[in-house]
Computed example of a mutant assay.
Amino acid sequence: MENEFFPQLTPDSTLLSPDEQTQGEILDKEKFHDVYKLVEEDGLPYFARLNGRGEVELYLVFETVDAFSEQTRDAVSVEFKTYQNKLLAVIWTLTDPLQPLGFPLSFDIRAVDERFVALTILQQPFTTLHYLAYENGQMTHIYSEAIHFSADERIRANGMIRSLYDGTPESMPEEAEVREEDTQTISALSLPASVLEETGMAFVLEYNRMMATHGEEEAQHLLMSTVKQAVWVMRRHSRSEVRDSSFTVWAAEQAERLSLIVTPSLSHLFEVVHMSEDEANPFSRFLMTLPEFVQTEDAAPLQLGAFPLLRYENGQLYHLELDEIVQQHLAKLFTQAFPGILNPYM
């Protein structure tokens, strides 16, 4: 049973790691092909990687060397937390209590490879953290340092992993879990028409399949947990324009499928920095990993008869209250936008 808890994975011995010789240099695209793929194709600004020696390394990727200097002024630390039944390893680079900056690595402990990576971080004597800058298609190795964990930190984090693995999160101390910031409830009527008429990106899911697997209540919980995890990452993103963004999350049922729509699409926040803005977008990163995910598509929520569920604005998350008056208001907006077409809100 212990072998099942701590699985063994065989590393790819051909994978190289940045070292003293590469510090200050541009990493070769062929030698570090997997690192380039994680950044360029997968759009990951931070990640854990199993190197050729079987060691787990952590990577932070900045837009520029100057951004690295601005965002790593304090002594770096890694804090383990849990959130939505996952383990988080938050790499803190700024400890200002008013404006802390952390990069949350998420590990699904139920997945063998992610559990292996998390446990290996705690087992190895130290974990190397590499700082990179990605500019104009080239990756510069800025600096590397070793992160050490105390015996108490290792015991505490191992306990979190065991609790998540056993499905007993209630056995963890209360401070282990990331607490939700205060979420206010407001009427969807408080949103201006310009917001309700925005278009965005729809994440289409096979909802009937999800309900068959988990049951209706658990399926709803899974979707909302996934959405809130994306919001959590947005709130703590390394770039202020992402943290300060505003967006609305909608839901529309279509036969056997469900569309979760984010308006606006947020592509303007990610397309410049990352080669693949879909993967860099936290909503894409989390929703596209669900087994029931089908596709993304451009969407106008009103046209689909969608209802707004959440609003994020100025760092605050709002639950949107829905009632018949809201439905009538959406129906009116639909008629104005799509005259002569059957109104899905009627």
Results as ranks from 00 to 15, higher is better:
3 N>F: 03
5 F>N: 01
7 P>I: 02
8 Q>C: 04
8 Q>I: 10
10 T>W: 03
10 T>Y: 02
11 P>W: 14
16 L>H: 15
17 S>H: 13
20 E>C: 09
21 Q>F: 10
22 T>E: 12
24 G>I: 11
29 K>F: 08
31 K>L: 09
37 K>L: 12
37 K>V: 13
40 E>R: 11
41 E>K: 08
45 P>W: 06
49 R>T: 02
51 N>L: 01
56 V>S: 01
59 Y>E: 07
62 F>M: 03
63 E>P: 11
69 S>K: 15
70 E>N: 11
72 T>Q: 09
73 R>L: 04
74 D>S: 08
75 A>W: 05
77 S>T: 13
82 T>N: 07
85 N>D: 07
86 K>V: 03
86 K>L: 07
90 V>Q: 12
93 T>I: 06
94 L>R: 09
95 T>A: 05
97 P>Y: 02
98 L>F: 15
101 L>D: 04
102 G>V: 02
103 F>R: 04
105 L>P: 09
117 V>C: 06
118 A>H: 00
124 Q>M: 06
124 Q>K: 12
125 P>F: 02
128 T>F: 06
129 L>S: 07
133 A>F: 13
137 G>V: 09
138 Q>A: 15
140 T>G: 09
141 H>E: 04
141 H>S: 02
143 Y>R: 12
145 E>Q: 14
146 A>V: 09
150 S>R: 00
153 E>K: 00
157 A>I: 00
157 A>M: 00
160 M>S: 01
179 R>I: 05
181 E>D: 05
182 D>S: 05
188 A>S: 13
188 A>V: 03
190 S>F: 02
191 L>H: 06
194 S>K: 03
194 S>I: 05
195 V>L: 07
196 L>W: 02
197 E>Q: 12
198 E>I: 02
198 E>V: 01
200 G>H: 01
202 A>T: 02
203 F>P: 01
204 V>A: 05
206 E>W: 09
208 N>Y: 03
210 M>Q: 15
212 A>V: 10
217 E>F: 07
221 H>N: 13
223 L>E: 01
229 Q>K: 15
232 W>T: 07
232 W>Q: 12
232 W>K: 15
234 M>V: 15
238 S>I: 11
239 R>H: 02
247 F>A: 07
247 F>S: 08
251 A>C: 12
252 A>Q: 03
256 E>P: 07
259 S>C: 14
260 L>K: 10
266 L>R: 12
266 L>Y: 07
269 L>T: 04
271 E>P: 01
271 E>G: 07
275 M>Q: 10
286 F>A: 08
287 L>D: 11
287 L>Y: 15
289 T>R: 14
294 V>P: 10
298 D>P: 12
304 L>G: 11
306 A>S: 13
308 P>L: 04
310 L>I: 08
310 L>H: 14
312 Y>P: 15
314 N>M: 01
315 G>L: 01
319 H>E: 07
319 H>C: 01
323 D>V: 03
324 E>K: 03
325 I>P: 08
328 Q>V: 06
331 A>I: 10
334 F>T: 04
335 T>V: 13
337 A>E: 14
339 P>M: 04
341 I>D: 06
343 N>V: 15
343 N>K: 03
343 N>Y: 10
344 P>L: 08
